[in-house]
């Protein structure tokens, strides 16, 4: 505003003929698409790749995944440790050249356990989050898009499911299924998707009356196209935030379920259960909590950076910015 005012006050210079030039545009040429035609995914990837912060998140994740695959092997080659063999003569030892991350209350090497725990946590966290995403987006999309009775009934169903005591459901699963990774992912996703579906529903309700949606619809776009080409990409912000948050939620919920006996059975452990086990004595044996906790935070951070980048790359309104 202030700029405009300044401009207004200055006297305008006089125009001369030289200031004018005939527009010489080849109308055909203007129709030619110069930029290479990109598929939506390719486009997203290109934009993600140019985002350094997001890429550093991706690199960190890849490093962690590689370390969680090879870390335990390295320690095994160097010192011969594995994740389950106890050494009662060496419990609660500080980090040293022998035990890089120290030892836990049964004398097991924390380095091996941290990386093999990361393996479990990553699998569980990512799988649960993706399943939540899939179900939540479809369910929430349908609720928000159709509205009316469909919305009411589906909404009520999700509320009922959400209100049933989760602990009861878990105990029932515990009785019916054998403890395994699959069972734990099932237990995590049984109600995990609901939050996502509510977020999506809210977004779709907001977006579905926007002009571009109306325009697209009046041009004959079908439900699927409206939902997947217009509505969901525009809702990608909150969806990705929710998604990146559901990874750590799943990682910690897993430790709770493992403790109940539903998940992977001890001596196999996950980052979450290692943190939980270390909690009562962390003031005396900080390393038992520190290493898994830091790793969880780094995983989190990486997912968040990546998520942010992904959001920016996916969101059509942020294109070319």
């Amino acid at each position: 505003m202030s700029n405009e005012n300044k401009l207004n006050k200055q006297p305008l210079p006089a125009l001369t003929a030289a200031d004018f030039e005939s527009v010489n545009v080849n109308e055909r040429e203007s129709e030619v698409i110069k930029r290479e035609s990109l598929t939506a995914w390719r486009d997203t990837w290109e934009r993600l790749r140019s985002n350094k912060v997001a890429m550093s998140g991706l690199v960190a994740l890849v490093v962690i995944i590689i370390a969680s695959i090879f870390g335990p092997w390295i320690a095994y080659w160097v010192h011969g440790y594995d994740y389950q063999t106890n050494d009662l003569m060496a419990t609660n030892q500080k980090p040293s050249a022998l035990h890089w991350f120290g030892t836990d209350d049964l004398g097991r090497d924390m380095f091996v356990r941290t990386w093999s725990g990361a393996r479990i946590s990553l699998i569980v966290g990512v799988a649960a989050a993706l399943i939540d995403l899939l179900i939540g987006v479809i369910y929430g999309g349908i609720m928000g898009y159709f509205g009316g009775r469909v919305d009411t009934i589906m909404n009520k169903f999700s509320e009922i499911l959400y209100a049933i005591p989760y602990l009861l459901v878990t105990i029932l699963l515990l009785v019916v299924f054998k403890p395994s990774l699959g069972t734990i992912i099932l237990a995590l996703t049984i109600t995990g998707w609901i939050n996502m579906s509510w977020i999506v529903r809210g977004e779709i309700m907001k977006l579905k009356n926007r002009e571009y949606v109306l325009a697209s619809r009046s041009m004959g776009a079908g439900t699927g196209r409206l939902l997947f080409r217009h509505l969901l990409p525009n809702a990608s912000g909150p969806i990705i935030v929710t998604l990146t948050l559901s990874v750590p939620n799943a990682i910690f919920a897993e430790s709770f379920l493992s403790f109940l006996g539903l998940g992977v059975q001890a001596p196999i452990s996950s980052l979450g259960s290692m943190v939980e086990n270390a909690l009562t004595g962390w003031m005396f044996y900080p390393w038992r909590m520190l290493f898994p906790a830091i790793l969880i935070s780094v995983i989190m951070l990486a997912f968040n950076l990546l998520g942010d980048g992904l959001r920016d790359a996916l969101d059509p309104s942020l294109k070319n910015k």
Binding site: L279, A293, N304
Partner: peptide, 15 residues
């Protein structure tokens, strides 16, 4: 803010 947010989420309430 984002770093704080990540810490807030990555540190579970029991810890």
């Amino acid at each position: 803010v984002m770093v704080l947010a990540v810490i807030g989420i990555a540190v579970p309430s029991f810890v």
